[in-house]
Amino acid sequence: MTRERSEPEVIEAILEKTGIGESYVIAILQAVQEHYHYLPQWVFSYISARLGVGIARLYSVATFYENFSLEPKGKYVLRVCDGTACHVRKSVPILTRLRAELGVSAEVPTTGDLLFTLETVSCLGACGLAPVLTVNDKVYPAMTPEAASRLLAGLKETEL
């Protein structure tokens, strides 16, 4: 946990943009997640005090939505689409291959060096390109286990 130090100025800047109120909770958490790539615990008490919304309620919202992460995510978030079209066109072997190469699992999706996080994602609506894989929102079409493996190798190389 490298970022557990409180940075009120970061949250204040976010609140400035989103507005303050219970109806902005999701937007605020999204902005926090965009900044830190996850939701650090200290943020909850800070936002709770500023919004007058209980911490348990914030935690409740954060754990309902799939995109929020309470654990730090990797620098590269790889998401394998497992929508119908991708599933039918064999997205599972891609996932299996990447998991094996990264040594991650559904329960522990992030590598120890915090470089990679591997997740599945429900349909990205890019069914014509199935199966697809995204790396930090960039879509890679018509993947195969081999192509995914090459993509991963490329990412690893840039990090050397």
Binding site: D82, G83, T84, H87, S122, C123, G125, C127
Partner: peptide, 11 residues
């Protein structure tokens, strides 16, 4: 919120 897998009309 076009969530059905395999649907992308709204997108």
């Amino acid at each position: 919120d076009e969530g059905d897998p395999g649907a992308f009309m709204d997108r």
